[in-house]
Design a protein around this nucleic acid. Structure first.
Lengths: 190, 190
DNA sequence: TTGACAACTTACTAACTAGTAAGTAATATA
DNA sequence: TATATTACTTACTAGTTAGTAAGTTGTCAA
């Protein structure tokens, strides 16, 4: 047949969007199938279980993130520009129908998702936090970022606030999210 | 009959805990009924729909918050102590089986919950943010808090980070949450 | 041209979901 | 003592869920 050779990718795109829109327990195979214009058994053909689908979404996200941070277009940027790139990921999510980040969505549903998906979520969060920590440390050493305490703690604060900021923006509007981003910048340059 | 005159309150307690544990779409009337030791129709007797139950949980939370902030035990505290009290709410949540905050849970599921519950979530978030903003402003004027920019933006950053911090702690452990709290304090006293 | 395979559809199941209608038993009230 | 009310239970429904088994069809390789 080979009607649509990138069906698998499209399913991942839709699942990722639905995860960020409604949470793991807020969407079903039927939702994906309808949007794709196929029957729900077709989704099971590509991803036998919802658990595997969820893991595949996160794994792809992790791969994408590693690809970016190891690519010269990000790797060779100044700490300030690196941070701007990172903030940009969240700004883009907010602009795209008010999505929240994958980590926030999965952590909120943490006690209602399968074990393997919890592990994927852990790894994803650890990887993002660790890159952010290294970036903040680099910036502090270069004298372009100023903050008290350890880079690890500051990274936890920044990441938490971006994650929470996307959520609060759902209730109080995009302005609140931008305030969070700008305040983060100001607190680092003060 | 009047076997248990505070059934209604117990249902609200259980629903609140389940909301913070699994999210709005991660729990059912059956879960509450089983924990309470009654049939699920008994829950419908007290709260006809899940929508009304969710709204009642948030309304009670809002009432509780207003009661506290208008009570002398909080109202008359110094800005630092007020902030400590506020951080304490989140620390207690984390210690209690790793719950996340109501606002974070409902905002993450925002596009998968009923309209009236969205409105309740909005009001709850607005009220918390507005109190936090006033507290930060008061502290800045008294010279005990230092930060650049508007108190509103700083409040958005602090609230976002607490919300996100509870979620990240699910993946990476309680230590990360405490780092967020301590970093917030340091950034305010710097 | 035959046969294998990929990518589906059709048709189904068992479990769970919120929600309802009718009945029951203990208690409060008149 | 009779009646109303509160707080349930029993028994059900219609819809949704993830998941499966068996059949279909277009494509490609030998």
């Amino acid at each position: 047949m080979v009607k649509n050779s990138n069906t698998q990718r499209t399913i991942l795109d839709l699942a990722e969007a639905l995860l960020q829109d409604k949470g793991f327990n807020g969407f079903s195979y039927a939702h994906i199938a309808e949007k794709l214009g196929v029957k729900n058994a077709a989704i099971h053909y590509h991803f036998p279980s919802k658990e595997e689908l969820g893991c595949a979404v996160v794994q792809r996200y992790r791969d994408r993130f590693q690809l970016w941070i190891n690519n010269a277009r990000v790797k060779d940027l100044s700490p300030q520009k690196k941070l701007d790139w990172f903030f940009g990921i969240y700004t883009t999510l907010r602009a795209d129908k008010g999505r929240v980040c994958l980590a926030g969505s999965l952590e909120t549903d943490f006690n209602a998702i399968p074990d393997s998906l919890r592990e994927q979520t852990q790894s994803m969060t650890r990887e993002m936090l660790s890159w952010l920590q290294a970036t903040l440390k680099e910036g502090k050493q270069l004298g372009v970022f100023q903050f008290n305490g350890e880079a690890g703690a500051k990274a936890a604060l920044v990441l938490s606030s971006l994650q929470g900021g996307l959520q609060i923006a759902r209730a109080l509007g995009t302005k609140k999210f931008h305030e969070v981003v700008e305040q983060n910048k100001q607190d680092l340059l003060a």
